[in-house]
């Protein structure tokens, strides 16, 4: 309870009311739908001014190093704030972001939504995601991963305060990531 920083899953279920669970899930689905419908400016409106949005690389470590808590270094794939996320949207709007011209189609699936903590007007949750992207005539890409979000109550809805993404690939098998995960 009240721990918004834990990365590992808690060993016991954190109990919340069905109403809160429902409310949070519906917010996540709305957010996913806005992105799938390319309504990125509206989506940006669901992010707090101080939002942090991150994704780092994964590495393969040998058991000897893992047991000593040592892992190969990682680096950012996304390391965004509200402004850089907005600039990514602005880039798509230029009509010259060639990777997204003509525009791709995406479908986002959010599952395993678990509220993992509450503090003041913020909730912490974890969920798994799958994103399918169809682009050009016949390119199909899928992105699978998990993420930890912190949401803040905003009137009768929510805003995203932080999103820590993980993507379950070591060598990315897509040529680039041109969408939000």
């Amino acid at each position: 309870m009240d721990d918004l920083s834990a990365k590992a899953a808690a060993s016991a279920v954190y109990k919340v009311s069905p109403e809160l669970q429902h409310e949070v899930e519906q917010f996540l689905y709305l957010e996913a739908a806005l992105q799938d419908e390319h309504r990125f400016r509206e989506w940006l409106g669901l992010l707090s001014e101080d939002v942090r949005y991150t994704l780092s690389t994964n590495t393969l470590a040998q058991v000897r190093d893992r047991r000593r808590g040592i892992a190969p270094p990682t680096t950012y794939i996304f390391n965004e704030n509200k402004y850089t996320l907005e600039r990514r949207v602005a880039r798509l709007e230029t009509g010259m972001a060639w990777v997204e011209e003509p525009q791709s189609r995406t479908r986002r699936f959010i599952t395993n939504v678990r509220i993992t903590g509450q503090a003041g007007d913020e909730v912490r949750l974890s969920c798994n995601y799958a994103v399918h992207r169809a682009a050009k005539a016949r390119d199909h890409h899928t992105f699978y991963g998990t993420r930890r979000d912190t949401l803040r109550r905003n009137g009768d809805s929510w805003i995203v305060v932080s999103r820590e993404l993980e993507l379950d690939e070591f060598v990315l098998v897509t040529a680039n990531i041109s969408i939000f995960l």
């Binding site: 950012y76 850089t84 600039r87 880039r91 990777v99 990315l172 897509t174 040529a175 680039n176 990531i177």
Partner: peptide
């Protein structure tokens, strides 16, 4: 990373070509 990582503002367009 912002410019030339796999999700970089510039990198994305090179690979597409």
């Amino acid at each position: 990373a912002r410019a030339f990582g796999p999700a970089g503002f510039l990198e994305q367009d090179d690979s597409e070509n």
